[in-house]
Amino acid sequence: MSVDKIWVLAEVVDGAPITTSLELITQARSLAGTVEAVAWGDATPSVAATLGEYGVTTVHDVGDLGGALPGVPVAAAIAAAVAAGAGPDAVLFPATYDGRDIAGRLSAKLDRPVLTNVVDLIADDGGLVTQHAIFGGTQVVSARFTGEGPGIYVVRAKSFPAEPSGGAPASAVAAPAPDTGATNAARIVARHVEERTGPKLDEAAVVVSGGRGLGERDSYALIEELATLLRGAAGASRAIVDAGWVPYSHQVGQTGKTVKPTVYLACGISGATQHLVGMKNSKNIVAINKDADAPIFSVADLGIVGDVHKVLPKLIDALKSRG
């Protein structure tokens, strides 16, 4: 399978393409001669300029979805282009909620397999080889498709840098979804946005995360206070998200955010493989845990074996007294 044309799913949030889509476009530039994007919603004309800056020449605009979840209609639009012979050799999807839905739908529609949880894409022998971090990032698996394309790849956030190439605005072409009948019957009837202050979790230079070792919901205030003092963002393990102590948007890991800050402070977090995949590539890791054998220490540059209820208040006081 030679790779001449790659399509990247350009997911748009608040009127701009998400960073993961820009990361994928950046990488696609080095893998194929032509990089095009697929987008939906009403902001496509204005994001075409940004996408062009990163090297996209054409945006296939599925248009307004009328409240439908993107999975079915966007996959149907891509499948229609493939059937018409105008499709790509590979489609790259960010590993987001909608990205995963569209990739899964497209796979079954086209009867093509998927490679998911991809963390690297390499040109090899005319095709693409993927890399996947498994077992908490201790091993790296390389894989590739052996059959007919297009190849469907779901790629994790922060696998590549996002770098503009100074391209001209992309031209938008309409790629309306064909009628998919009852399959496309799910509708968004209301949206709820949770308030957040401070830097975004996946963009902050410092992330302070808390886990079950905090003991109770109220202790999460220590994490928030420390994060504020360090001008960082507060994160969490899934254990305390599931327990309802903090909203899901704070979760770091396999099913949460992938973060790569200058410093990641893990407080009362054991270091389960699913947590590690979301933070293991942080530049520096500090762990505070009372169990000297906790797996989190195996990735920590600095490990404090101690009680979060003793170490954190002292740390907070010391930082406050520095002003």
């Binding site: 979840l69 909620y97 968004i188 209301a190 949206r191 709820h192 949770e194 948007s249």
Partner: peptide, 10 residues
Amino acid sequence: TEAGYDEVES
């Protein structure tokens, strides 16, 4: 969702 949650009916 990334921002919170959506109410969806099917």
